[in-house]
Nucleic acid binder design. Structure first.
Lengths: 207, 207, 207, 207
DNA sequence: AATGAATGAGTGTTCATTCAT
DNA sequence: GATGAATGAACACTCATTCAT
């Protein structure tokens, strides 16, 4: 019953291949053939490791969620002061031309379009967005606490920052030569800093 | 004797039908059959009025760009004070649950995914985004002028606001029960107001 | 009931348009649309003047047969000596680069392919070939009589010459830069002259 | 473990099926369905072995060219005296009612019509005709040498003989009960013999 | 006569999925 | 595990023909 050793590796290869193909051609045009040849495998093998194409997509969403989690952990571990973590996070996601990993960004945009269409994808996608929102909220809360500010607006602020990030991803993949260089990281950081500075002071601990 | 042409009306009907279908099923799954039956027409007639499916998509993008332009004109004509126009614009686009026209919003998200895949769509999509950026920039500039602030940061600020808007559209179509209610309009307005308030004073006319 | 004046003219225009289109695209790809636009007419008008597409093809074959007849008559009237008529005929059909009217030649090749497929076309095509064979035979007989040779081999010889002509038409339309320049007229004339010279003397009239 | 490839065999089967279908219905009407059912295969399988329909046609032309080559080789090997080879060749191609293989002949006529329409087919078709011309020329040269005649007119003569052959193919497929029985083989042989006999004597070896 | 929109069957091609080897 | 052939449904698109005007 236990999966033989290379199965997990094969699944990861196939999932990674889908990321590459979906970034260029979208999900519908990401044929089993093209995924297989991107992964260097025979077409028939794909359906040995995955029940169907949809399952590869769900696996890819999982993979990207896992990447997001480890990035968050890395940033939390690295940056000493809590107030710097938010900046570090935004820089990591939006700095250097809005996406140092264009394939992953484009794949993510394609996935969000699939989430509009498909109930099942939307459910999983929503969980990843919820996770991302929780992470940004945590960073915002930490920054507010450091400034001894009220944290009740943190989630709404985080939601705005997240929307800005997602929008920047979409625009970087779907447009050419339209958006000003480096606008996204700057806008996200400015927005966060100003909102934190404008937040009311924290209530007393005794409350 | 001769039949009078009705092509323009038919093209508009078909384009509108694509909007409805693409919002629910995406571009690839928006079959000619489904577009035709949504429009109440025979399938073969679609290709009498449009060279191919792609051309309907480009027509839809045109239509949405035209809608954006007329909305902008309406807002500029209505709101007396320049400083109120930006708020009116953001409210119109993001207020009332992020999208009073969910089909148009979802269709727009699907179109941006197609823009990632297809050169030709990307070119047209980029022009519409450029138009939108120009409109937001104009509103931001007006607000800055009203406050006698320097306008040099207007375009970058507008880009951030636009990204936030586009991201909010995507998230509203692709997620369920994740984002806080009403966050988008509030975040966009807060961001704009704070940034305008933080802008340096305008330089003297004498330059 | 009598056809109104311009109907015959319209039918001729449409038939001529088919000749042009069929030469470039073949019969199957000669769409009613393309025939109509070649003739400068509305598509719906075609089926007013012809029952269906096939009827236009039959009309075209008729037209080409008529052209062949009038060419034959012209040559018979013009060349004084009977022996020169055959040469004049071969020169008219094969001289100057195997076909001074490439469209008509190509259309004829397309028609012969349709004759392979369709019983009805084959019947009409066969009649035109029979007419052509009769004309060549008549020219050969005249040449043999002039040389006082037996005419019994005339029909077989004419058939060979006709096959050579038809083959040359096909090769001139279907190949590029393969056949030697001017070979066809030379070969046909040589063949005819040698065969006539080699024919046995005519039997006595009394027989 | 792995399945052994059978693509070459399948391609040959499909190509052969096209020959049969094209002979009766022409290229346009030779639908993928009809080719598949003639070959006893599922329709989808055709496009697994061939990129598109056109590629099957090109494969068929290749096959017919290969048949022509092997026929030529066989004749050259069999007939002892060089002078007999040309007769053997013409008899093989034109004897017994102009085509012992009527399907191949009809298919060839259809292919030549496609060559008129399509650049790519014309290029390949031209090469096959060039090959055929080279073969006939070689046979004519051998016959001229045997009679110690000048060989300079060989290519032009061969072109005439080839045109006669091609014309006879077309007429045999496209007409019924028009051409005299057995005319083609007789005409081609007579033409060749008379032209060879009429050729000037060979120049001296010393040139 | 003339127009041009409308119809619907048919075509080549794609592709997820299955399966024998 | 792995291969690559096989299946069949679905798609965009074409087109002769019809018909209301």
């Amino acid at each position: 019953m236990a999966r033989s050793p290379n199965t997990e590796a094969r699944r990861a290869e196939i999932t990674q291949a889908l990321l590459t193909v979906i970034a260029r051609h979208g999900y519908e045009k990401a044929t089993i053939q093209s995924i297989a040849s991107q992964a260097g495998l025979a077409p028939g093998l794909i359906h040995y490791h995955f029940k169907n194409k949809q399952e590869i997509l769900l696996s890819l969403i999982d993979m990207l969620a896992e990447v997001a989690r480890s990035r968050f952990t890395r940033i939390c571990d690295a940056a000493a002061a809590p107030g710097l973590r938010l900046d570090a996070y935004l820089e990591a996601r939006l700095g250097r031309g809005e996406g140092a990993a264009p394939d992953a960004v484009a794949a993510w945009v394609m996935i969000s379009a699939e989430a509009v269409r498909q109930e099942e994808v939307r459910a999983v996608y929503s969980q990843v967005i919820a996770q991302e929102l929780a992470m940004v909220t945590e960073l915002v809360v930490a920054a507010l606490r450091e400034q001894q500010r009220d944290t009740r607006g943190a989630r709404t602020l985080a939601a705005g920052v997240l929307a800005l990030m997602e929008g920047a991803f979409g625009l970087s993949s779907a447009t050419t030569a339209v958006m000003p260089a480096g606008y996204a990281a700057k806008a996200a950081k400015d927005f966060a800093h100003m909102a934190i500075a404008a937040a009311p002071p924290a209530r007393h601990a005794g409350r």
